[in-house]
Amino acid sequence: MSQRRACVVLSIDRSSVRYRRRRPDDAHIREAMKQVASERRRFGY
C-alpha cells in the first residue's frame, strides 16, 4: 500500500508521517551538565 493511500485511510497528514526532527548537536552541553550534576548532587533534585 502506498504512503499516500495509507494516510488517507488513517486520516492523517502525510507531512506528519515524513517529519524528521532536526536537533542541534549538544553533546558538549550534556557533558557539562553531567559534570555539574556529579559535583553537586543536589542540583539535579
Results as ranks from 00 to 15, higher is better:
M1C: 08
M1D: 10
M1Q: 06
M1E: 12
S2M: 07
R4E: 11
R4Q: 08
R5Q: 10
R5Y: 10
R5I: 12
R5H: 07
A6T: 15
A6M: 15
A6L: 15
A6V: 15
C7R: 01
C7W: 00
V8C: 09
V8Q: 07
V8I: 15
V9S: 04
V9T: 13
L10H: 05
S11W: 01
S11D: 14
S11N: 14
I12F: 03
I12A: 07
D13F: 02
D13L: 13
R14L: 15
S16T: 14
V17W: 01
R18S: 15
Y19W: 13
Y19G: 05
R20Q: 08
R21Q: 09
R21P: 10
R21W: 03
R22V: 12
R22W: 02
R22S: 08
R22Q: 07
R22Y: 05
R23G: 05
P24M: 03
P24H: 01
P24V: 03
D25Y: 00
D26R: 14
A27V: 11
A27G: 00
H28K: 13
I29W: 06
I29F: 05
R30L: 07
R30K: 12
E31A: 13
E31Q: 10
A32W: 01
A32L: 14
A32Y: 03
M33C: 06
M33H: 02
M33T: 04
K34F: 01
K34Q: 10
K34W: 03
K34R: 13
Q35T: 14
Q35S: 09
V36K: 08
V36A: 14
A37K: 10
A37R: 12
S38H: 02
E39T: 11
E39F: 02
R40E: 10
R40P: 00
R40F: 07
R41H: 04
R41N: 05
R42N: 07
F43N: 03
G44D: 00
G44K: 07
G44E: 06
G44C: 02
